[in-house]
Design a protein around this nucleic acid. Structure first.
Lengths: 223, 223
DNA sequence: GTTAACTTGCTGGCTGACAAGCAAGTTTCT
DNA sequence: AGAAACTTGCTTGTCAGCCAGCAAGTTAAC
């Protein structure tokens, strides 16, 4: 089983692990880009460079492949959340600075992985119930919320304050990914423009910082 | 066949206009709820109380029906935008108050018509090009942007400021509609709770007002 | 160290389900 | 009677899942 007994032989060896990954990559791209229903296992096979039937062979069914893609996606998100949290806590900065850093971190993350946003967005819109039976996804958001609270020094008394703040961060960050070609263009914003990302990041930071300062008789002044 | 030979004719009268509306209503619901691909013309016919082929008879094709649904949807949005603009300008209030009112108005609108949000969101995610050939949708957003700018007294110098503000309003307002059952639940927010809508509205208002005041050396103080 | 028995990776053909669109009805209205 | 408003039947196409098979490897027997 342990892969790679490859002494010479640089040719195409049969490699289940590699095939699985190729299929997952292909499926992630196609599911994110065109949606679950619009993607056939044939398409996945073609893009992965394997045959029509191979995705089914490895993952049992289309639904199972889909679940595997989502699972891997949430695992990546969790990793990013943990890295961000570690960085924020290690910095020892004020909540203001930490919040600004979180905005930048998360903006970068979704910009680097737009497929994740699209995948989750599609899933939320669909009436599929895959997400229900996925404890990982629940854990990820709860972990993010806890980290957010801790980083910003929000006590537990006002329980929903941090949730609303996180919700807003996510909403503001995701929107341009999904509606970049439609809404943004319509109101004269070009998400491809070199300064758009920076401009947007600034705007989001302004919004959230205002709310954070307003929240309590905060002593820190910034500006 | 089923037809129930009506002697008196309390029965289904033939009314093309009414049938069209019933079909549009059914299609809007199904497209929004389950998506375009997952909805068959049979489903639409069944929900509209007509036969399998009637949607095709009136609209020519599934794609045309879809386009008709979207067109009607944007027409409704435009009506709402115009009403909101008229109300705002008639009020003669300060930008702060007007912005708060716009948040309330728009929150109510999307809460009352979650299907519109889902339809547009699905359309943005899909790789269909229907929206391209729909001047109405472009006009609606541009009209909304112009109204926003005028209401808030944002001059034309900083052209993207109003766009970012509107973008944020839309992003913040739409998100709970789409992710109410997934993300919101995960972070402990219940979009069905009686006070959620109000709480959310307040939060959004706080965010946007902060940004509006920050934008310029604004003289108005509020709080 | 060759070969035979067996496993794993992967493929193409087949089938049953379902959907879109058309064509040829049938019913109702005027 | 004729057109408009529907409906039923049919054709064609697509796709998921199953199956039988083959080829590349692996283990074991000799």
């Amino acid at each position: 089983m342990a892969r790679a007994t490859k002494p010479e032989s640089r040719e195409r060896v049969r490699d289940a692990e590699r095939s699985r990954e190729l299929i997952l990559d292909a499926a992630e791209h196609l599911f994110a880009e065109h949606g679950y229903e619009e993607t056939s296992l044939s398409d996945v096979g073609k893009r992965a460079g394997v045959s029509r039937a191979t995705p089914g062979y490895f993952f049992g069914s289309k639904a199972e492949l889909h679940r595997a893609v989502l699972e891997r996606c949430f695992a990546d998100v969790r990793r990013a959340v943990r890295e961000g949290k570690a960085r924020a806590l290690a910095s020892g900065q004020t909540p203001d600075v930490i919040l600004a850093g979180a905005v930048a971190d998360y903006s970068d993350f979704v910009a680097a992985r737009p497929n994740f946003v699209r995948l989750i967005e599609r899933e939320a819109l669909s009436d599929r119930t895959v997400l229900e039976g996925m404890p990982l996804r629940l854990a990820v958001w709860q972990e993010a919320l806890a980290a957010f609270r801790q980083e910003l020094g929000l006590d537990i008394s006002d329980t929903s304050e941090a949730a609303h703040l996180l919700l807003s961060l996510v909403a503001l960050t995701w929107f341009p990914i999904v509606h970049g070609g439609t809404f943004l263009k319509a109101v004269g914003l070009d998400p491809q423009a070199p300064d758009f990302a920076e401009q947007r990041r600034r705007h989001i930071t302004t919004l959230l910082l205002g709310a954070l300062r307003e929240r309590a008789g905060n002593t820190s002044t910034w500006s």
